[in-house]
Structure formats: C-alpha cells, structure tokens
C-alpha cells in the first residue's frame, strides 16, 4: 500500500459557474494492481461521494472513462497507478470538450463528427439471402487497426488541430470513415467522400501524431487519415 496524492479537477456547474474550476487533493493509499479508475472509485466510495466521472465496463472496452492523467489522455481503467511513476497524480477531464461536471465532458460534438461521415456500411447491391457475403481473410485484414475503436474520445481530445478548429472532423471520425472505405463490402465511398473532402475534413489534419500517442487501443488514426488521402488522390488522378 503506497501513499499517493490525487489532484483531481473539480467543477460543479451549480457552484463554480463562471470559474475555470478548481483542483481538489485527495491523499489515499493505493494497493498493488490498482488502476486510476480503482483509485477514483476508492475516492468516490470512501472519501468524497460527490466526485463525478463516467465509468462502466472497467476493462477497456466500453470507452466511458477517457480522461487526462498526468497530462496524457487515456482511459482510467487501463492505467495502472504504479506505472505512472509519480506520487502525485493529476486527473483532468478530456481537453477540447465542454466540461459538464468534474471529469465528465460533453461528448455530443464528438459524436456529431461521427454522424457526419455516415458511420455505417452502405451497400446498394442486395446481399445474398440466408447467407453471408463472402470476404476473403486478406480483405478482412484491411479492417484490422480500424474497427477496434471504442469511441473513448482520447484521440480527438488530444488533437491540436481540433482544439483550434472545433469543426474539424477529428481523428476518430476519419478513422471510422477509413474503416468503411477499406471494407470490401462497402459501396458508400461516393456518399462518404463529400463529408471528408472538406476544409474541416481529411485535409485539415497536420499529421501531428498526438492521436496515435493518445489511443489506449494503440490504433493509428494518422495512418488511417493518410490512407484516406491516398484513396482520394487515386480517385482524382
């Protein structure tokens, strides 16, 4: 059991309105194997019940607990406290989004970007009845590294271009577009390309690679964006 100080961002819209929020310190003992989410749960259940944060599956598949820990975006449930290497742990809400309360941010703008790129399979030809469409393992492999996204928001929140341009689709939505673009079953490129071929779309990315560093699932959104550009280049030439 090691002593840690958690410096947690707090913002209660009913009390702190108009302020930029405050930082509250919690000194707690952390057991071996605890993740940052375990520590937050401990604080909520034993120290201060008013602390608000999202959480659900606590094993890195639901994407609820995206936050900024010691300045780095990740999901709290996968971040071992001991691996942080500091005795003082700063926990902040994801940047680039409006804070609703404490560590909870408004993800609506993030989801809106996804809706904009038509995040679903578009197929005009009828599928075979009572059978699957065939897809070779090689074609299926193209989806690897794109379909695993859990929508935690860590990438878009870490993107300086998104901070500057709130209309930028962001790495997440663009990677989703790439996921469908490379799917051998999808026929929606023409429809989808309008949304991403925009000054707030695929061309806005400055290949800063923050999203790659931030992704807790180790996906490479920048590469997906580059792939999209390549596809569009091919389409034009």
């Amino acid at each position: 059991m090691a002593e840690y100080i958690f410096r947690v961002f707090r913002y209660d819209p009913e009390k702190d309105e108009g302020t930029r929020g405050r930082v509250q310190e919690y000194k707690i003992g952390v057991e071996r194997g605890w993740t940052v989410l375990d520590a937050l749960n401990y604080i909520k259940w034993h120290v201060d019940g008013s602390l608000a944060y999202r959480r659900a599956c606590r094993h890195g598949i639901c994407g609820s607990c995206g936050m900024t820990i010691n300045g780095k975006n990740t999901i709290a449930c996968e971040q071992q406290v001991a691996d942080l290497g500091t005795q003082v742990v700063t926990v902040e809400p994801l940047r680039g989004f409006r804070v609703i309360k404490d560590l909870i941010v408004d993800m609506e703008p993030f989801y809106d970007k996804l809706y904009a790129i038509k995040p679903y399979l578009i197929a005009y030809s009828d599928p075979p009845t009572d059978k699957e469409r065939l897809q070779s393992p090689e074609d299926r492999k193209l989806l690897d590294g794109k379909y695993e996204c859990i929508l935690c928001g860590c990438c878009t929140s870490s993107c300086p271009t998104y901070w500057a341009d709130k209309e930028f689709l962001g790495p997440n939505a663009l990677m989703k577009a790439a996921r469908f673009a490379v799917d051998s079953r999808d026929e929606g490129w023409e429809e989808r390309v309008n949304a991403i071929d925009d000054k707030h779309g695929v061309w806005r990315c400055h290949t800063i690679f923050n999203c790659v560093e931030a992704c807790p699932k180790e996906l490479n959104a920048t590469r997906a964006i580059v792939e999209l550009r390549r596809l569009m280049l091919k389409g034009r030439l």
Partner: peptide, 10 residues
C-alpha cells in the same frame, strides 16, 4: 475552393 485537396497536393 475544393475541400483543400489541391492545397494539400501542391
């Protein structure tokens, strides 16, 4: 102009 394709390309 176009979405930025030419700016990016050039």
């Amino acid at each position: 102009t176009s979405g930025g394709f030419y700016a990016w390309l050039f």
